[in-house]
C-alpha cells in the first residue's frame, strides 16, 4: 500500500481518526477497569480497618467524614461486634510529612488505647528513612505505640520530651506520624478534641523552638 501523501485533508483525517479510535478504546478500557479500581480501593480500606481493629466477625459502620484539628479531612469508621462497640478506625492526614502529606489509619478501643495502625500513604517520605513508618511503630518494634493511650501517654518523640522513639535519622517523618495520631485521636474522642488541639499547639511551639536549636540534627535527617 502506498504511503498517504501530505495533503491537508489526509493529515487532518488521519490524526483525527487515530485520536478518535484511541479515545474510544480508552473509554472502553476505562469502563472495564472502573469497577476493579473502585474494588481495589475498597479492599485496601477494608484491609486497613481489619488490621487496625483486629477481631473476627466485626461489623464496620458507614464512614463518617469530619475535619480534624489541622483542617484536613478525617474519616471515622465505628467497629462493633454483636451490637457491642469494639473500637474505632480513624483515617487521618498529617501535612507535616518530609515531602508532603502522609495518610495513616489508626485503631482505638473504646477507652482510647491504640489498637493498631496502618500507613496508607507515605510515598513522599524518604525510602529507607521516613518510609520505614509502616513497621517502626508496630508492636515489639523500637517505636512501639500499640496499647498506649494518647490521653495519658505523651505521644511525641523523645526529642520533644515525649515517650516515642523516633525513626533513626527521620525525626520529621516521625513527628508527622505522631501528628496524624493526634489528629485521629482528636476527632475520635469528641470531648478530648479541645485539650488535644491545645496541647497540640504547645507541641507545635515546642517543636518550633526545638527545630531552631537542633537544626543540624534535622539536616542529618536525610543523610
Amino acid at each position: 500500500m502506498a504511503k498517504l501523501e501530505n495533503s491537508t485533508k489526509n493529515m487532518v483525517l488521519s490524526l483525527t481518526a487515530i485520536t478518535l479510535v484511541v479515545g474510544a478504546l480508552l473509554g472502553l478500557v476505562n469502563a472495564v477497569t472502573a469497577e476493579p479500581i473502585e474494588q481495589a480501593k475498597a479492599n485496601k480500606q477494608a484491609a486497613a480497618i481489619a488490621a487496625v481493629v483486629p477481631g473476627e466477625g466485626n461489623e464496620i459502620s458507614e464512614p463518617e467524614t469530619v475535619t480534624s484539628a489541622n483542617g484536613e479531612e478525617a474519616v471515622i469508621f465505628t467497629v462493633t461486634k454483636g451490637g457491642q462497640p469494639v473500637g474505632k478506625a480513624v483515617r487521618a492526614v498529617s501535612k507535616n510529612g518530609f515531602g508532603g502529606k502522609i495518610t495513616v489509619m489508626f485503631g482505638f478501643d473504646p477507652n482510647g488505647n491504640i489498637l493498631g495502625y496502618s500507613v496508607l500513604d507515605c510515598s513522599n517520605e524518604t525510602p529507607g528513612l521516613g518510609a520505614k513508618m509502616p513497621d517502626w511503630f508496630q508492636k515489639g518494634q523500637k517505636g512501639d505505640i500499640i496499647g498506649k493511650n494518647p490521653s495519658t501517654n505523651n505521644m511525641t518523640v523523645s526529642k520533644d520530651g515525649g515517650e516515642v522513639d523516633a525513626i533513626t535519622a527521620a525525626t520529621i517523618s516521625s513527628r508527622a506520624f505522631l501528628d496524624a495520631l493526634a489528629q485521629a485521636y482528636g476527632v475520635c474522642s469528641g470531648t478530648e478534641v479541645a485539650t488535644t488541639s491545645a496541647s497540640q499547639q504547645q507541641n507545635a511551639t515546642a517543636v518550633a523552638s526545638c527545630e531552631n536549636s537542633q537544626s543540624c540534627a534535622d539536616c542529618a535527617e536525610s543523610m
Binding site: 520529621i172 517543636v207 518550633a208 537544626s215 539536616c219 535527617e221 536525610s222
Partner: peptide, 15 residues
C-alpha cells in the same frame, strides 16, 4: 540533600 529539612525549619521559624 544538605537542603533537606530547610523548608520545615523555615516554616516553623516563621510560625
Amino acid at each position: 540533600m544538605g537542603f533537606s529539612g530547610v523548608d520545615k525549619g523555615l516554616s516553623a521559624a516563621l510560625g
